[in-house]
Amino acid sequence: MRLLTHNALRNNAAAAKGKGFPLRITATEVEVKDSCPFDEHRLVFVEGLLSTLDWSALIEAASQLGIPTLPPVLTEDLAEDPEFLEALHHVLMNVHLIQGILTCPATGREFPVRDGIPNMVLEEEDCEHVRY
C-alpha cells in the first residue's frame, strides 16, 4: 500500500461518525522500491495532487514509517520547486507498506495490511446507514 492510498483511506463505519481519518499505521514491514519513476508526466500529477492531499496526515504517516524527508508545512514556494515535488512523489508512490496494521483514530478498529493489500472489509451491521 502506498502512502498516496493511505492519504485517501478513511474508516467509513457507522461507529466512526466520519472521523475515521487518518488511520494510524503500525508497520512491521516497509519496502522502498522505485516502482514509479519520476518524469514530467508525474510532475504534473503531483502538482495536481497538492490541492487534495491532507498534509498533516501525510507527514504523520511518513514519520510512522520512519521517513522524515518532508517539511512540516507546505508553503507556496515549495509547491513550485521541482526538487521538492520529486521528493514528495517518491514518498507518495515508492514507499510501500507491506505488512502492518491500520488503526482507526475514532473507534480503534484495526485493519490488517497483508502482502501490501489493506483489508478494509466491513460487516453489514458496521456499515454507514444511508437513507433511501
Binding site: 492510498t5 514509479c36 491532507d54 493489500i117 483489508n119 472489509v121
Partner: peptide
C-alpha cells in the same frame, strides 16, 4: 513490470467506499 502506478485494496463496494471526500 516494476513500474506500476496501481495500488490494491481488499474491500466490498456494497459497504460504501472508505475514502475521504473529493479524492478521485
Amino acid at each position: 513490470v516494476l513500474q506500476s502506478t496501481g495500488d490494491l485494496m481488499h474491500h466490498d463496494m456494497g459497504s460504501g467506499l472508505p475514502f475521504r471526500p473529493a479524492t478521485f
